[in-house]
């Protein structure tokens, strides 16, 4: 089902730790993308993509510009309906492979058993992907509510639980205590994420007033306020200076380790990708060309060729020699 890591030409045995991590994608997956194809008219943006993201992993999706990474994100988060393909996400320990075919045969978009729930993301409208399947995302071009304060941004992210607590507005309008209590809790949760992202001092400032790096962190904080199981980050390090990049790495690690949220990220900044990811999937022209640990991917000639634009083997060898591989 899952493609084995693309064979490296200079085989190097993965270190035990690496092997364990790669096994996680196989043994404890959170998201299984199968045969995902997205066509826009005649353009094939994503072509028969299959990969697995492990629970508790930071999975990086990399590739040259126009490789279809953001399209994959838009499919996973429901903004695009894929032409073909299946994206299964699980909560809990429900066995994806055992149930996914059965679920696919029904018209439902999810299935719940004693071990957890299984969601078919391609069947859900975008807001359900976030509200029910608990997949949050950030955007390549930051999309904050710039006219609202930082705190308000985080409160909007907790819309659904607050809506329930306000009895769909009626209880809130009448000032029921239950809603006020829940709102306090929501503010506390917002405060937690503001402290975590070092934005607490700017809580009452309009989001549009923040510097670029802060806006990126706020978008991550906002996504985390929806309490996701999978957080999809579209180029979180774009436009950050090296120090901010390092802080981002620490933040992402902490999200993974302290909150059990799995991460899927698109990134161009290789220092971020190689430093923090457990698992890297490489796309080129919508097709997966490599899949493995950062070290495996780094030494994969297909990846090097894709990034450096070399076509024939001899040239790849030459380039490899130059970069010292």
């Amino acid at each position: 089902m899952d493609d084995p890591p693309a064979p490296a030409r200079s085989p190097r045995a993965p270190a035990p730790a690496e092997r364990r991590i790669l096994m996680r994608a196989l043994s404890d997956p959170i998201l299984k993308v199968q045969n995902l194809t997205m066509r826009f008219g005649g353009l094939v943006a994503v072509n028969d993509l299959t990969f697995t993201a492990g629970r508790g992993d930071i999975t990086a999706l990399i590739g040259p510009n126009g490789a279809g990474k953001t399209t994959v994100f838009n499919c996973i988060t429901g903004f695009y309906k894929p032409t073909t393909g299946r994206m299964a996400l699980r909560h809990g320990t429900i066995d994806i492979d055992a149930h996914v075919e059965r679920l696919t045969d029904t018209p439902n978009d999810h299935l719940t058993s004693a071990d957890g729930s299984l969601y078919l993301l391609e069947r859900m409208p975008d807001f359900h992907v976030s509200a029910r399947a608990k997949v949050a995302r950030t955007f390549q071009n930051i999309r904050l509510f710039s006219g609202m304060t930082v705190l308000e941004n985080l409160m909007v992210a907790q819309h659904n639980p607050l809506m329930v607590a306000s009895n769909w507005t009626i209880g809130g309008l009448l000032g029921f205590a239950g809603f006020r209590k829940r709102e306090k809790a929501a503010i506390e949760s917002a405060k937690y994420w503001l402290e975590k992202t070092k934005l607490i001092d700017r809580a009452d400032d309009p989001a549009g007033d923040l510097p670029y790096g802060d806006q990126r962190r706020l978008e991550i904080a906002r996504a985390m306020c929806t309490e996701p199981v999978l957080l999809c980050l579209d180029e979180p390090a774009a436009g950050l200076n090296p120090r901010e990049s390092l802080e981002l790495n620490a933040l992402l690690r902490s999200i993974r380790d302290d909150h059990g949220t799995s991460l899927l990220l698109i990134e161009h900044d290789m220092s971020v990708v190689m430093e923090i990811s457990d698992h890297v999937v490489v796309l080129d022209y919508g097709t997966k060309i490599s899949d493995g640990t950062p070290d495996q991917v780094k030494s994969d000639p297909k990846v090097i060729a894709a990034y450096l634009g070399a076509e024939d083997e001899a040239e790849v060898e030459k380039i490899e020699a130059e970069v010292g591989l």
């Binding site: 903004f79 807001f127 976030s130 509510f145 006219g147 308000e152 909007v156 907790q158």
Partner: peptide, 20 residues
Amino acid sequence: PVGRAWEALREDEIACRSLG
């Protein structure tokens, strides 16, 4: 929440949908 969602909708509809 409903009023905040209105204002959020005015600010950015796509971000609203990404937040469920």
